[in-house]
């Protein structure tokens, strides 16, 4: 039985913890960091909004679908909502699998689908202060 965890939070994303399941040789983690510019303009932060009840269900559905092709033991996703300052992670993803191939594939495919199918939005960029 694999583990799927999806979380939306307004808080700073914590590092992943936990024991690697027996038989797993690959742990792949990705942190999507807010860059210092958006559409060529310097920014201080991005603000995210989610349709929360659907976003969690949709992330779990995508992971289950991908698992038929890329079997993984653990997939954890944490997406931040609200204001996320430059330099902080807006999303963190951890994938644990027996081998690195499915783990990397799961991570890449999930991120591609998240950006198409999960109801989360960058609703505005907060401009960087002018010095």
């Amino acid at each position: 039985m694999s583990t799927i965890e999806t979380t939306l939070t307004p808080h700073v994303l914590p590092p992943f913890t936990g024991r690697t399941p027996d038989g797993c040789g690959a742990v792949v983690e990705f942190f999507g960091i807010v860059r210092s510019e958006e559409n060529g303009e310097p920014i201080a932060a991005l603000e995210y909004e989610a349709y929360e009840p659907m976003a969690g269900l949709q992330m779990q559905r995508i992971i289950r679908e991908l698992q038929s092709e890329y079997p993984c033991e653990v997939v954890r996703v944490i997406h931040r909502i609200g204001i996320v300052p430059v330099g902080e992670a807006a999303i963190a993803l951890q994938v644990v699998a027996r081998h690195r191939g499915p783990a990397f594939a799961m991570l890449g495919c999930f991120m591609d689908r998240l950006k198409q199918e999960v109801p989360i939005w960058k609703i505005r960029a907060l401009p960087a202060p002018i010095l």
């Binding site: 349709y51 659907m54 991120m111 950006k115 198409q116």
Partner: peptide, 10 residues
């Protein structure tokens, strides 16, 4: 029923 404009998470 939710109206879902183009998403932009991640």
């Amino acid at each position: 029923v939710a109206l879902i404009p183009p998403v932009s998470g991640g």
